[in-house]
Design a protein around this nucleic acid. Structure first.
Lengths: 323, 323
DNA sequence: TCAAAAGTGTTATCCTTACACCCATGT
DNA sequence: ACATGGGTGTAAGGATAACACTTTTGA
């Protein structure tokens, strides 16, 4: 129980690097087409004392991005599931990280050199964007296919399994009294994977419930879309109790821009007045005095993040409600 | 950015195995005295497909415990800080796990064989137990020593550092308008470590602010007390949105026993009526019909966990309030 | 003057917190 | 009868969610 013999394994760091551009939350990917993957870097314990230092080191060297908030997501040691069956990297353990940043013109060249690109994250998870209401694809494709998955096998010995699937479906995708919870991105992804509705599932040799297979959203290499799902879940949750949005904002911004960024991440439309009151009573921002050159209507007052709040309040986040 | 070269490292799994006995939350440790450590097991990717399977395998084999809920805490890759300076295991990455279980007479023998023992976790964190009110040691030793730490260096160039320390102190230990947040176990531990008030800090060669050094709480080997702090933080938080308490309860229990377990973990005293209403409106339990042979007063009704709730509600936890 | 976006005041509702009191049993 | 712990009803306060309306600019 206290022995020290362990087997040699390799450690890799996967980074979900997020920024928001206008209304689109973006993630940095390398490669293109069906070969898109999250940026990946080795961890060398001799050169870097901690994972986070190692991560910052190679990310900043290769992308010229200024990484703000960084947090560990999860460590994946899976063989088999969510990876190629005969994966040469089977003994690579990957530690997933979430990093928040802002796009800067200076980093453009470095990104091109590294064959890295910003991609809207809802390209990978189109069913997660509820800003313009419930996505049509849910009722048109996803839910029917998942219903079919819960009843596959029919009555008899498979009935209990079907009931469990129905329960999981209701909890993760809502309906039947259960609400849609925007934080359950990972659970929804895993359900879709198990039902064989994702390209990753087909690739891993899993059966599909449908006669004419559909592949939802843009796929990624290895289990990277799952790591991205983990990151979105975590970020959507964290928004509510830590002021992490500001890592994605420029130094000065209007309240509408701030709301737009929160909406981009949470995938929900927010109630304007309530959002403003929330920001105000939380004392998260202060006016700079200046106003933005209006983009159409009345000019908006500019605000900046009140860093002092970090020292004043215990959990300063934006517990955004609905609509 | 997409290269595959990684350095060979070893992976170990550290388990924080928790149970509650009467009013005492317990953690399983191996060794004794200043050499106490968390149970540790190697991860062999050839034998086990995932970390969790590997963990369950060696824990159940060696302790004969039935492990219920298991969750990954954090992956530590640190060299230096929080570990021996010339640590022979410098290239061991340890993945921390939290596991919940109940003590069973059958596992006693296996535990003895493995030199493992249940220890009350507040022995390692005496300042975290607020069930009988604010612990005296906070005002008697801890806060004065930490105040001194914030002013060490006096005015001048060290003043800004002192201000940052003051802010961290207020946020993690409360006071000055900030409340005590029982979930900030890890932050408090790290502050005490940095101030040199823990045996682990002395061992790592860190200076102490006090002339007569004090060492708070019982120490552990390596950075294991830090991992335990992570586990307590996580568990105290999780209690509020997932019905994990029941993993620590026998199949039938009284509401007072349930409250006692929640109090043991959260380290707070709870308001009886409100706790009961909370449990009732959350529909987390159902009466068995039987009553316990009273331990003094009126016999208490026995309840069991309503497993169905897992399928009914999205986030069935006990969002316990104060007092 | 009209479109477009900024910005505000007020109310209904629920959830949290706290109060104080009654009940059933063993000694 | 009384000590001990089990069990309950109800009201005050605060946070949340929703309502509709006014203001300032550019075209």
């Amino acid at each position: 129980m206290n022995e020290d013999t362990t087997r040699a394994i390799e450690i890799g760091l996967n980074a979900v690097i997020v920024s928001v551009l206008g209304p689109a939350p973006m993630v940095l990917v390398v490669g293109s087409g069906a070969r898109e993957a999250l940026p990946f870097g080795p961890f060398d314990p001799l050169r870097h004392r901690t994972f986070e230092i190692g991560l910052r080191s190679w990310v900043e060297a290769q992308t010229a991005l200024n990484i703000g908030h960084v947090e560990q997501l999860y460590t994946f040691g899976d063989r088999g599931r969510h990876s190629q069956p005969d994966d040469a990297r089977a003994h690579v353990v990957s530690v997933g990280y979430l990093a928040l940043t802002r796009q800067s013109p200076e980093s453009e060249e470095a990104l091109t050199m590294a064959n890295a690109n910003w991609r809207p994250w809802y390209g990978y998870f189109p069913w997660e964007d509820w800003r313009d209401g419930r996505p049509d694809m849910l009722d048109a494709f996803i839910l029917p296919a998942l219903e079919q998955w819960t009843t596959a096998g029919g009555p008899g010995p498979d009935a209990r399994r079907g009931q469990r699937r129905k329960d999981r479906l209701r909890l993760s995708f809502g309906g039947d009294g259960s609400p849609w919870d925007e934080e359950r991105v990972l659970e929804r992804y895993e359900l879709l994977y198990e039902a064989g509705l994702l390209e990753e599932a087909r690739r891993d040799g899993r059966p599909c419930v449908l006669d004419t297979p559909i592949a939802l959203g843009h796929p990624m290499q290895f289990d990277h879309r799952r790591i991205l799902a983990t990151a979105i879940s975590r970020l959507r949750g964290k928004l509510k109790y830590r002021p992490v949005v500001f890592e994605l904002m420029p130094p000065e911004f209007t309240l509408t821009e701030l709301q737009g960024t929160v909406e981009a991440i949470s995938g929900r439309h927010l109630h304007k007045q309530n959002f403003r009151r929330l920001v105000e009573t939380a004392e998260l921002v202060e006016p700079t005095g200046a106003a933005s050159t209006s983009t159409g209507g009345r000019p908006a007052a500019l605000f900046r993040f009140r860093r002092e709040i970090l020292r004043e309040r215990p959990a300063p986040g934006l517990r955004v409600g609905g609509r």
